[in-house]
């Protein structure tokens, strides 16, 4: 069959958000281009790009969503449906440091509960909450593939394993 002569790009459906799309530095744009270059289909880069936007803007805010929609040639609702499926993508603001204590079996039976409680008491927030100053968020998450070094938590992207309350104090107190 003959090929279309005019390249047909999908149209996206911009909703009337009272924001304009986010803008990023040349370096970030370059990083985004590198991700896009990996795939024959733009949409495939949606997760990597979400992490970039999240890193730059703290979470997927409307401006970021609009940026992604334009950049990937999608509708904002397409961004939303994907973003809300994955537990590591935030559509709400989140603390500067996100403490994610693994609560699944191996960690549980090696004392994950105590770690969560310790963090809770130390920060004065329950799992799922963020401190007033927006510095810390605390969550209990499912298995992080660190069962052999339980209990553990992931602080943003860093693993901290074989935890004890003392170790937790050291880690949290050392944070700027």
């Amino acid at each position: 069959m003959s090929q279309p002569l005019t390249k047909i790009e999908p149209l996206y459906q911009p909703v009337d958000l009272d924001v304009s799309p986010a803008t990023f530095s040349a370096d970030v744009e370059a990083e985004i281009d590198r991700h896009l270059a990996k795939y024959p289909v733009r949409r495939s880069a949606i997760l990597p790009l979400m992490f970039v936007v999240q890193r730059e803007r703290g979470y997927l805010d409307p401006a970021g969503v609009l940026y992604l929609a334009n950049r990937l040639g999608l509708r904002t609702t397409d961004i939303w449906e994907v973003a809300t499926f994955y537990s590591m993508i935030y559509t709400e603001p989140i603390g500067k440091y996100h403490i994610q204590v693994c609560k699944t079996l191996s960690c549980k039976i090696r004392g994950a509960g105590a770690i969560t409680e310790h963090c809770s008491r130390k920060l004065g927030i329950k799992p799922g909450e963020t401190t007033e100053d927006g510095k810390f968020s605390l969550s209990e998450v499912e298995c992080l593939g660190s069962c052999g070094t339980a209990p553990m938590f992931q602080l943003n992207f860093d693993y901290h394993e074989n935890l004890t309350p003392e170790k937790v104090d050291q880690i949290l107190d050392s944070l700027p």
Binding site: Y39, F51, F85, Y86, S87, I89, V141, E142
Partner: peptide
């Protein structure tokens, strides 16, 4: 060979 990231979904 390209690396791709998931985002938290078993």
């Amino acid at each position: 060979i390209y690396t791709h990231t998931g985002a938290g979904a078993y």
